[in-house]
Design a protein around this nucleic acid. Structure first.
Lengths: 224, 224
DNA sequence: GATGTCGGGTTGTCCGACAACTGTACGCCC
DNA sequence: GGGCGTACAGTTGTCGGACAACCCGACATC
């Protein structure tokens, strides 16, 4: 009984971390921006120790970088780091695709749902309730994470989400993927169709090139 | 000039975290053991806030688990968690093995060195300077991590190390792998030989069964 | 037996303080 | 002018203490 009940009590640390995350993804806090502990504590109305804990949480997630005795700054992504993240995602998602046949029905359905969500979001573009760039990026990344979910490993999914967060951070400032949104969605739907048909190797290859092209556009955006 | 110079200044937080890690891996702190902040602060001679930061670091690494308003305890591994970790490692190491041909010479050499280190350590067994169980486990895990290194992704290596740490924790209390140390070493040497011969698929399969058997012995040890 | 109350122990958060460290600016000397 | 030592302001790293919120078990009550 009462299985569906739950209550969320966010600690102050978690609320501070969440506020910073919002600022990060919204682009208010660009890469390299230093985060001063006292200033944050004052403007948020919390103690410095609380801010420190929140900063440490985000540092653990790779969003911030701590330099001893100098402070915490928003992580900057050099091309090598971008490549590393994309490479890691390629490995994880390829592993997920390869286990499509062995995956549980629920995990497979999660992929279908994620693609469907991406589609329906894109379908709203141009209407009064057009999705924001952030929502689109979110839905897009959800598709990719759901592929990793096919491995059935909660830990790998957590890693994939962490990697996605890093990429999202790099994209927060350079979002110009919307020009070909329809094509993007179609490409992902195509991947799913081929998966359902058992074309595992083909999907893996297509995925690799999809991610590589994504990496290129991020690099260009960072360089420009 | 001076490229080889370096100096390590460990912060107090890091020293506390390291001390706790030692206790964890040595088996002094069994799964489920609660870690009281004030008591730790007193016995280590540091402030409570410092202990809190160290605990948060280890919590981020998955070694400890924080329960709100109740405290931090040593993470306990149910069979599902063990399976998840082993499964994740299988995926990562298989990915590494598959990229043997594309890997850099340095990464390949790292595998050879790791296997060599494992062998030389095992060769000392029975002599006056016999290796401790902990050293053996360390060398064994180093081999597996080096396989992930073949992917060339620093982030995946970091994940592999974190997973290895979790397993090492589960093994800290149930170490009875030494009975067949020579066979273990030989099996890993065999993997390397087959890799050098290009038998990628064979190695991947052997690796999977090796990890699965490792999982079995951990499960048995946990159940017993 | 279910419910209400109380008290001890622990965490969550805040505050204030100070040493250690970093980067910069200034003055000095060769 | 360039190298060197020093002083200074800003920031982090660590400390100690304080108190409310909270969890849990024991006890009393209905």
């Amino acid at each position: 009984m009462y299985e569906t009940l739950a209550l969320e009590r966010a600690s102050t640390v978690e609320r501070v971390a969440e506020a910073l995350r919002r600022g990060l993804f919204a682009g208010d806090l660009g890469p390299g921006t230093p985060l001063r502990e006292v200033a944050l504590a004052q403007s948020l109305g919390v103690a410095r120790s609380t801010v420190r804990e929140a900063l440490q949480v985000l540092t653990g997630e790779g969003l911030l970088t701590r330099v001893p005795h100098k402070g915490v700054v928003v992580t900057t992504h050099d091309p090598d780091a971008v490549h590393d993240v994309v490479h890691a995602r390629t490995v994880l998602e390829a592993a997920g695709v390869r286990s499509w046949c062995d995956a549980s029905a629920g995990d497979r359905q999660a992929v279908r749902d994620a693609v469907g969500g991406y589609e329906s979001l894109a379908g709203r573009s141009g209407t009064p309730e057009a999705p924001t760039a952030q929502e689109v990026a979110e839905a897009h990344l959800a598709v990719h994470v759901s592929l990793v979910g096919l491995t059935g490993s909660a830990r790998l999914v957590a890693v994939a989400e962490s990697l996605a967060a890093e990429i999202r951070l790099a994209l927060a400032h350079v979002d110009r993927l919307r020009d070909d949104l329809a094509a993007q969605v179609a490409a992902h739907r195509d991947l799913l169709v081929r998966l359902e048909n058992g074309d595992v190797d083909g999907v893996a290859a297509a995925l690799a090139s999809h991610l590589a092209s994504g990496e290129r556009s991020i690099r260009e955006a960072l360089a420009g």
